[in-house]
């Protein structure tokens, strides 16, 4: 176990992922969350408007560092087009190819 210090405050981050419309890609994306056991709230999958591309949206309850790591791990997946993280204070960062 790594050194334990006071955990940074958890806050809500809305994560929007544009990814290939394939179950295996979706499964892989969920695997990123499952492996890190990151709590999520709300989960939606919709057509993005572009053929073959879906939009996956969920709310992450995590500290900003964890949210960023999740975004980076999603971002490097084959089949993920873009990842956008919106913090609850309205600032947003975009991890784009």
């Amino acid at each position: 176990m790594s050194g334990v210090s006071a955990p940074p405050p958890h806050s809500a981050h809305t994560v929007a992922v544009l990814l290939d419309d394939a179950l295996v890609t979706l499964n892989r994306a969920f695997g990123v969350l499952r492996r890190r056991n990151v709590p999520i709230e709300g989960l939606a999958l919709h057509p993005s408007g572009t053929a073959g591309v879906s939009r996956l949206t969920f709310v992450l309850k995590a500290d900003p560092l964890t949210a960023d790591r999740v975004a980076q791990q999603l971002h490097k997946m084959i089949g993920v087009r873009s990842v956008m993280v919106l913090a609850n204070d309205d600032s947003s960062t975009e991890a784009k190819r």
Binding site: S2, G3, S5, L65, R69, Q72, Q73, H75
Partner: peptide, 24 residues
């Protein structure tokens, strides 16, 4: 080892092809 006590005085430059490694 324990990252909390790793290179306590060092400022780290990290060069990597995988962006997800930076700061991980």
């Amino acid at each position: 080892g324990n990252t909390a006590s790793f290179a306590p005085q060092a400022r780290i430059v990290h060069i990597d092809l995988d962006r997800a490694e930076i700061g991980k």
